[in-house]
Design a protein around this nucleic acid. Structure first.
Lengths: 216, 216
DNA sequence: GTCTATACTTGGATAGAC
DNA sequence: GTCTATCCAAGTATAGAC
């Protein structure tokens, strides 16, 4: 039963050729999600952008939805690898805002949040997809929560606001800001908000005194 | 040239029968956007839910996208009529949060924000749709801005934070919270946030003194 | 003027070629 | 094992019936 035949439902096949094809398709899927959204992400369009045949999508991933989930995974992984290190470096509210600003700007330019938004919104149209997407947002929330706890954990504000709820809000805000920025083709208003947030953070730190910052 | 014939690109036709068909189609379009999202909102699906013929969509609206825009207009209008009166009644930060909470809960149940989210996310896939949707978000931003100015206009916080930027953030947050709530099928985390916001508003009012509330 | 039947296009999925 | 040619369903749009 070892080397036997017909493509099963379970993905991930052996050959190096296969891996390369998969990589190209995932890359193209991410690209199409960014430019044409979920509704425009058909097997044909994705395959064409990958310079590949549309049938391969069903061979390698079983369905378009599965490929799109793989694309979301790819983006999530890339993002976490990119930012995972910068979490620990945060020590105060202003630094947290600075870090968040940089991450948001970077995410916006890379189109990471676009992919996430399109997958969330698109999930409504494909039965079963919602749960899969929901499961993949966990890391995004956890990442935000970790950053918040690192920065505000033992400060007065940290006592009042549960980090989990705040993380939820931050992720929601990211999604919403992406949508509006993307729609208007103008990221300026969103970035202006981060500038205000930094002002507020500074104000808050001044009010509660320098002792509120974490010392390692 | 008065009573002449062939359906032009410009919509809105005369008869009462026509108006009724249009109404049914718009209603169905809103419904389908809520349940199946933009990607699932095809002419066939919408027409079937309206108990109507799919060809009528193209006769009355010229394209599916135009019908969906009409659906968005319908939702926007209904929402503004529903909440327009409650804006003036707000006099303090806590009242503003209370009002916002109620509006958010109502929006969530009615599916208004779902329609908006789907249209924004879906706009990526249809050329030209983005600009149309963007133009229709103006009122939502203005509504939020007006409410904020009413509540915070001459308070200390109102001096620091430009109402336009804050309104932008609020709308973005609404969109994001809707997406997450909708995806998880759980509105509890989002509503918990409003509870926290009320705490903060109360804290803020206590700090700045009762003089910061508006007197009419 | 309003609506239905039909034409044509694109999309998902697979049977079969290599 | 990997990929391509082909099938059928679903989509948009319109020509023509009422």
């Amino acid at each position: 039963m070892a080397k036997s035949g017909a493509p099963s439902n379970v993905m991930v096949r052996g050959g190096a050729r296969s891996a390369e094809t998969r990589r190209l398709l995932i890359e193209a899927a991410v690209d199409v999600l960014k430019s044409d959204g979920y509704a425009g992400a058909s097997a044909r369009v994705i395959a064409e952008r990958a310079g590949s045949n549309q049938g391969l999508i069903f061979y390698h991933f079983g369905s378009v939805a599965n490929l799109l989930l793989a694309a979301l995974d790819s983006v999530s992984t890339a993002r976490m690898e990119q930012y995972g290190s910068s979490v620990g470096a945060v020590g105060s509210a202003t630094e947290l805002v600075d870090s968040a600003t940089e991450i948001f700007r970077s995410d916006l330019d890379a189109g990471y949040i676009t992919v996430l938004v399109e997958m969330i919104a698109g999930a409504s149209s494909t039965p079963g997809l919602g749960a899969e997407v929901a499961a993949r947002i966990g890391p995004w929330k956890e990442f935000a929560q970790l950053a918040i706890e690192d920065a505000l954990g033992d400060s007065p504000l940290g006592q009042v606001l549960p980090s989990k709820d705040v993380a939820y809000a931050i992720v929601a805000l990211y999604l919403g800001l992406e949508m509006l920025s993307h729609l208007d083709g103008d990221r300026q208003p969103a970035l202006a908000l981060f500038a205000h947030a930094k002002q507020l953070a500074g104000l808050f730190e001044a009010m509660t005194g320098p002792s509120s910052t974490k010392e390692t």
